[in-house]
Design a protein around this nucleic acid. Structure first.
Lengths: 372, 372
DNA sequence: CCGTCTTCCTTCGAAATCGAAGATAAACCG
DNA sequence: CGGTTTATCTTCGATTTCGAAGGAAGACGG
């Protein structure tokens, strides 16, 4: 699976190429070499030829696909109280996705064991027999050091600090293991849904506020902590001290958790961020006003970043992203205050990849590891 | 100069490789293939063998250099009232650099003609005879569309809006032509002086405030306007309307132009930003106070970007960068307010490449075009 | 319906690249 | 000072990759 062969397989798996001719164009190899390699890949059962594609004026291409029996990826997206778990084939297509309640406060060992048990269960019930598991990946709602696969100073994951998640999973699975921040995975997942957009900011608005950054088509990690916008100081009348020790952090005003506690103070008790959206859709004026103000604050922070990064699109996901007032007030703030040059072709939109974005992103990154 | 040969030449020219062995390691080619190519490059006179390097425990490498007769690059860095002009050899080493007064307000044609005449003069007086000019590049103190080489909505370049600078130069020189924003060029120039730092923010503090961004070792352009931080809203007591139409932009408080006009109001009239630095060094308290406050404002804007981009270093250049209070107040603001995770290994330092950073950056980018 | 055009894919000799083995040259060390 | 180690560079047969030419399959147009 090494070298040129991996490249070709990757191009097919990611949907960038569907025929030998496309592979030749995209890989830069000669058409003859592509044919040779593809023949080998079909021989080893990783690729299959499946009917023919649509003609572009000449002979129809013979469509190539990654074999459904080539392997499976087990991926998860851990949240504070819920996790999404799924199985993907090597082209990143989900076979099954489930959301289950869990509690990361139980600590890393227990949570990861539960995750592994859930994977085993999914494989038993939904995994086609004989298809091998080829990689395991999970998103974490906190900072992750990409090199070591450790959780680093998470703010809301008691007991996880410095825990070697990748190592722990690696001991159980003798396979490529991926551990990455959840917003980063979301960003990678969205990136595939935004072809032609090489620079993307993906905002995850849920209990917390996360952001993943795609630069030049690839996930930008910086030194590991890139994309953090939750502890930016915002301009407000009041003054709130955030858990990070500073005052007036964005997170303290605009995160799902902050909205819920503000609503509780007003006598409206809710259980999870999605309930805030429900309240907004039910026309609860307090909820709508709070969400609007959160959107404005988020938008004001984004103006700085839009001028600086000049992305093609801002994509908003997470459980709050279905609140229309949030999106429109973010849009208003960004378009009002950013440079025309930066907003001229800027799209601000909700997630295209949907709630499985992080799982798809995990699949995408795992594929690279598997085909390394 | 195409393909593998260009790659090898580039590695030597950029200083990444000095011997055949290093070339083999960095290019991924087999050592034997490298030897063949290098022999050819020496044959065509582009590369020369020059003595031997220092041993790393075994046989000493035979040091390779780009031939001084391989070609010249003519580069310029246009400012509002002064331009730096220089000739570089193909390894990006300056043969001569001069600063000359000029006035971009005369419009693009006149300014560019003056630039070309200056290049001709430099070539006559300092260019070794028989060495061909291989590329021409210039930095522009305003936004440049990288694809078309046009100036786009510059704020302080009357008559330049939408002028096709690259095309104009291309008509005069039948050579690769580079036109790029000056802060971007500075960033590229600094990047070579910061090996191992793949993510860099380079601040140009002069009459205006510019910023170039290096992500993953390469210049980040976004849609063409990336790096703009001058029109970010800052938190201040007073309220000033900026030339962009919004209020309280960073540029209106912290740029060299803003500092000069503030000092003029206090009865201290100065001619150029460097005079502000002189005033600070002379212990003029008004100047020092203003520079400190400018540094704090810049630093507060940078906190957002540091959390977001998580760079390896912030490099500060431009004529104000020699004012020590500016640097220290930027440092203080960033270290105080950023996440520990983001500042743990963050370096905040003044330019290593010096006043020629933009010229060196132009050379670096031009080399890519020449060896395309 | 039949020639022409376009695109896709394969065949096969030519050329580039690899990589193992050896030659060269210097540092290290008792 | 001579053997040992380490690193650089070259030689040469084996392998991979290329690319021009041609075959295959369908679109297009009269």
């Amino acid at each position: 699976m090494r070298g040129a062969q991996g490249d070709l397989l990757r191009l097919v798996a990611t949907g960038h190429a569907e025929s030998r001719a496309e592979l030749a164009r995209l890989s830069g190899l000669a058409a003859s070499s592509v044919s040779l390699r593809v023949e080998e890949l079909i021989g080893t059962g990783l690729l299959v030829e499946e009917g023919s594609g649509t003609s572009r004026g000449g002979r129809r291409p013979r469509r190539l696909r990654v074999s459904p029996t080539a392997g499976l990826l087990a991926v998860a997206d851990l949240g504070a109280h819920h996790a999404r778990l799924g199985l993907l084939d090597l082209s990143g297509t989900p076979l099954v996705v489930e959301e289950r309640p869990c509690d990361i406060a139980l600590g890393p060992e227990e949570t990861l064991d539960w995750m592994a048990a859930s994977f085993d269960e999914l494989l038993l019930t939904h995994g086609p027999p004989g298809v091998p598991l080829r990689g395991v990946g999970t998103g974490i709602p906190g900072p992750v050091d990409p090199a070591s696969g450790r959780v680093v100073s998470p703010s809301r994951m008691p007991g996880w600090n410095n825990f070697p998640v990748a190592e722990h999973l690696g001991a159980r699975y003798d396979l490529p293991v991926l551990v990455e921040n959840d917003a980063n995975l979301m960003a990678v997942g969205e990136a595939r849904a935004w072809p032609g957009c090489d620079n993307l900011m993906v905002l995850k608005a849920g209990s917390g506020i996360g952001c993943g950054v795609i630069v030049d088509g690839r996930l930008h990690r910086g030194r590991g902590a890139a994309g953090d916008i939750s502890h930016v100081r915002v301009r407000t009348d009041s003054s709130v001290v955030c858990s990070c020790g500073h005052s007036d952090c964005l997170e303290a005003y605009a995160s799902g958790a902050a909205l819920m506690s503000a609503l509780t103070e007003q006598g409206i008790a809710l259980g999870r961020p999605a309930d805030v959206v429900a309240a907004v859709n039910d026309g609860v004026p307090e909820a709508t006003a709070l969400v609007r103000s959160a959107g404005r604050l988020i938008g004001e922070v984004l103006t700085v970043l839009v001028n600086f990064l000049n992305p093609d699109a801002i994509v908003i996901g997470g459980s709050l992203s279905t609140a229309e007032p949030l999106i429109s007030s973010i849009r208003a703030a960004v378009y009002e205050r950013c440079l025309p040059l930066a907003t001229r072709d800027l799209e601000i939109a909700v997630t295209r990849a949907g709630p499985d974005a992080a799982l798809l992103g995990a699949g995408s990154l795992l594929l690279d590891a598997v085909l390394g």
